[in-house]
Nucleic acid binder design. Sequence first.
DNA 1: CGACCGATCGTCT
DNA 2: GACGATCGGTCGA
Length: 201
Amino acid sequence: MTKLDYKFYSRRNVVQIARNLPGKLLVTNVGGECTSGRIVETEAYGGVTDRASHAYGGRRTARTEVMYAKGGTGYVYLCYGVHHLFNVVTNAKDIPHAILIRAVEPVQGLEMMLQRTGKKQMDYTLTSGPGNLSKALGIDVRHTGIDLTGDTIFIADDGFSVHPGDIVTSSRIGVAYAGKDADLPYRFFLKGNKYVSGRKH
DNA sequence: CGACCGATCGTCT
DNA sequence: GACGATCGGTCGA
């Protein structure tokens, strides 16, 4: 089990990194509980030139400031007043690239995930969708700005191998407001995985 | 199955 | 004062 390091996150091509993440393990140690899930769906957000990005046009606010941190930083924000969405910041400091983790497959800490989400029984909705996976893994806005090479939240390679042909590419979910950038092929997910949210093509 | 809708609040205009 | 990188429920076909 190898924790992904600064070298992995600091690469320039955010789309490439987003394609590399499915199959990796997202691990959280929150409230003394260790939970983890295998990443099955991601979306790249291309910074200042991407209309779908919170940092489009170089927008810099209190909320988006962490997007300008160095690669390997966590960016968590509240969506619709209800959901905490977890992103991985990539590239160098001052280049606001980010990758939204949209779904994971539960691996460790099932009981804790059920408790956190208030679900009675295990089913695919437990960690399908960016809001649901954050809740199950105990991630919330308190974690924005966190160093992903630390021990609280990190991503690891546990040797699980993904064939390139098993990764499906599509446009992103819920970004219709982004004009032509809504069509960019920036979403990646594992073919046939039941935890993938939204369109399966 | 798809379309629609309410929840709920921090953030930006 | 409007709105969102969502979710789960309801309603109709």
